[in-house]
Computed example of a mutant assay.
Amino acid sequence: MFLFRRRGADSARAVRAFYRSFIEQNAPEVRARRLLREWLSPDQRAQFDAKGYFEVTGSHTGRRYRIHYGTVSNVLELDDEMQPNTGWCFVPERALVAGDVMLAQKIALETDEAAVLAIANRVSMRPPSRPQVVRRAY
């Protein structure tokens, strides 16, 4: 391990900053998001960075799906005008962070769309909403 001489608050602050940086870069959600980005095509990555979702093509039907950031009810089937047509909900059996769920959804739709849709639940066609801040007047 490291041996430090007592040199004051600057050394301790530097060690804390290094540790905090290491923890932030290796948190489960950060690692999952990094892995997801590695699996996305350049176009999907640009779309995800700009809009918070990316689109994939189903392996059997060629339908387009939009995968929004999230873990449930975040997959929308698009019609010919690229508008949401049907919502789908399917997730891995164990609880995972959003990036890992989205990667599993992407791979599932691109490799075995028919099997995925056979077990998926239809959901509302509205895209997932972002939480809104409620402000109270006092």
Rank of each mutant, 00 (worst) to 15 (best):
M1E: 13
M1H: 12
M1L: 12
F2T: 08
L3P: 10
F4D: 14
F4H: 12
F4R: 13
R5W: 15
R6I: 10
R7N: 14
A9C: 09
R13S: 14
V15P: 11
V15H: 14
R16Y: 15
F18A: 11
R20P: 11
S21I: 05
I23M: 14
Q25P: 06
A27V: 07
P28V: 00
V30W: 02
V30L: 05
V30T: 12
V30Y: 02
A32C: 01
A32L: 00
R34Y: 08
R34V: 07
L35P: 04
L35K: 13
E38T: 08
E38P: 02
L40K: 03
L40T: 01
L40C: 01
S41A: 03
P42A: 07
D43E: 15
Q47V: 02
F48Y: 14
F48N: 02
F48E: 06
D49K: 07
D49Y: 05
A50R: 07
K51P: 04
G52V: 03
Y53Q: 00
Y53L: 03
F54E: 00
F54K: 02
T57G: 00
S59F: 01
H60G: 09
H60V: 06
T61L: 13
T61A: 14
R63F: 06
Y65H: 12
R66I: 02
I67F: 02
H68Q: 03
Y69I: 04
Y69S: 08
V72S: 13
V72K: 15
V75Q: 00
V75P: 03
L76W: 02
L76G: 05
E77P: 04
E77C: 14
L78G: 03
L78Y: 01
D79S: 06
D79M: 04
D80E: 14
M82T: 12
M82K: 12
P84W: 01
T86M: 09
G87D: 03
C89F: 10
V91N: 07
A98W: 04
A98C: 06
G99T: 01
G99Y: 02
D100F: 05
D100K: 04
V101Q: 02
M102H: 01
M102S: 02
L103V: 01
L103E: 02
Q105S: 00
K106C: 04
E110A: 08
E110S: 08
E110N: 05
T111I: 07
E113T: 05
A114E: 10
V116T: 11
L117F: 10
I119T: 13
I119G: 09
A120Q: 10
A120D: 07
A120H: 09
N121S: 15
N121R: 13
S124N: 14
M125D: 10
M125V: 14
R126N: 14
R126W: 05
R126D: 12
R126I: 08
P127D: 03
P128W: 00
S129W: 03
P131K: 10
V133K: 11
Y138P: 12
